[in-house]
């Protein structure tokens, strides 16, 4: 499944969301919809790849925080990886680094499930 801003890959352990453009207000809505769709389809383990993202806003971060909270209620989780320094700083400023599990690589994110 793909659209302009993201691609979804299947892995044995999780669904992987590759975000292919910056996550401003407009694209954040697409991310929220994509994650909601995966959760509605009973995906319990989701990894979001942010390695191609240069800008992110609080709406996009909030969408991932909300999804992680819902998934954890059913023993699932949402993990993220590939954050550039600016993105990591934004995650830190809104406190999301203490809520979401953040990894450097896809393999380490998948291994953490």
């Amino acid at each position: 499944m793909a659209n302009e801003s993201m691609t979804i890959r299947d892995n044995a352990d999780a669904k992987i969301v590759d975000v292919n453009e910056d996550l401003g207000s407009y694209a954040a809505a697409d991310l929220r919809k994509a994650i909601d769709r995966l959760i509605n389809e009973a995906s319990q383990q989701i990894v979001v790849n942010l390695s191609q993202v240069q800008h992110i806003n609080s709406t996009a971060i909030g969408a991932m925080v909300g999804a992680a909270k819902r998934l954890r209620q059913n023993n699932g989780d949402l993990k993220v990886y590939g954050l550039a320094d600016n993105l990591k700083r934004t995650f830190d400023l809104v406190g999301a680094s203490s809520v979401l599990e953040i990894y450097n690589s896809e393999s380490s994110a998948l291994a953490a499930f």
Binding site: I61, V65, G95, A96, V99
Partner: peptide, 9 residues
């Protein structure tokens, strides 16, 4: 709170 989904902007 850190796990608030909105209002950080």
């Amino acid at each position: 709170t850190p796990d608030s989904e909105r209002g950080h902007g």
